[in-house]
Amino acid sequence: MKIAVCIKRVPDTETRIKIAADGRSIDESGVKFVLNPYDEYAVEEALRRKEAAGSGEVVVIALGPDAAQETIRTALAMGADRGVLLQADARVLDPSVIARALVAELRDGGYDLVLFGKLAIDDYHHAVGPMVAELLRLPCVSAAARLELGDGKATAEREVEGGVEVVEFPLPAVLTADKGLNEPRYPALKGIMAAKKKPLEVKPVTLEAGGLEVLELALPPERKPGRILGEGPGAVPALIRALRTEAKVL
């Protein structure tokens, strides 16, 4: 079983966002970068599938700056076999540009499964996986929280509003991972040591400009300062009054 996992280097969820001087990007000084949390589920799933099959290869692919090598090493420490960095410094806010760059790498890879996290917690697109699938004309399930693999066939479940869709599809296919798909492992010391010796190929790529131009990146408007209406259940009538007459939401 040959599996590709497309991963991304993102600011840790604890990060307090500061806007850079250009007004179009974040100030990265002091920001800790991590493997995108949803990508951890994708890496874990790939490792389990390879382990269950008894043979195969898990290739992690990242598109990003040189520092994303570190992110790839994290996935290698978890147990992936080798990494590819599509090295590009430009930050492109049009997910279709990212998808096309990945497709060029994936197209002739002979992968049975191409996995993604359902979204990257920085850009929040929820888009690159399904785009890659359409461009490669492969079946795709996005935001899968459960996966069963049979002989050339697979079943996945995805949570939607008001229920869970059960989706059947043949392999090869693209799948994006939601929380709940599995419990990702922590890299063990042995894995971290082994990861240093695993192959990591760096391929510089030039990204297209894309069809979206960033005008401005700003902090969200501050909320108007609120007020504490009181302590304990005695404050409930004041809250009801405020919601009815002031906020007019009741």
Partner: peptide, 11 residues
């Protein structure tokens, strides 16, 4: 973006 920690205006 960043789960609402920032807002991006795009053309």
């Amino acid at each position: 973006v960043y789960a609402g920690k920032a807002v991006c205006r795009l053309k």
